[in-house]
């Protein structure tokens, strides 16, 4: 019937509004579980998967896992990575391809994670750092392999 439907609609509406107000009222009175992180005073809690920038992991012997295969360079959609390779002479006297410099343009990077996925040896990862602001743009062009580092034994 029309009238009973109308009345039940009104009461249903009022009830749903009150439900919403109860929720916000609960939040208003329970001030302890605030989610604001006061950033400069307080280090923000970031998710593990947060993508801040691409880094190359080095172990304690200053060795990395990058073979210079340029898979990441090819995977990058906007030319962020530039790998300069050189030829090392192995103890056996053979020539072996290795990286000279791993150039990373942070200013072009969209943090899409494709390079990390493409890397066959797991040499590069995404780090959690996010404070990237600098005074000059050229500071954003980074060399990821540390000076004097070399490829880890056994990584092909």
């Amino acid at each position: 019937m029309f009238l009973s439907k109308y009345i039940s609609e009104v009461f249903g509406g009022v009830k749903s509004l009150l439900t919403g107000m109860r929720r916000t009222g609960y939040y208003f009175t329970h001030h302890k579980n605030i989610i604001t992180q006061q950033y400069p005073n307080q280090k923000p809690v970031l998710a593990e998967r947060f993508r801040g920038e691409v880094v190359m992991t080095h172990d304690e012997n200053n060795e990395h896992a990058c073979t210079g295969c340029t898979a990441c360079e090819l995977a990058c959609p906007n030319g962020t990575i530039k790998i300069v390779t050189k030829f090392d002479i192995t103890p056996e006297g053979k020539k072996k391809k290795a990286i000279d410099t791993f150039v990373y343009h942070l200013e072009l990077c969209t943090m899409c994670n494709l390079c990390v996925d493409a890397c066959p040896t797991g040499a590069i990862t995404m780090s959690n750092s996010f404070e990237h602001s600098v005074f000059d743009r050229s500071e954003l062009t980074k060399v990821l392999n540390k000076p004097g580092s070399k490829i880890r034994e056994g990584v092909e």
Binding site: T24, Y27, F28, N33, I34, I35, T36, Q38
Partner: peptide
């Protein structure tokens, strides 16, 4: 302040 508290924020501080 009311809006901040209802959204579990701090508001102007």
């Amino acid at each position: 302040k009311v809006s901040a508290y209802m959204q579990l924020r701090l508001g102007p501080n």
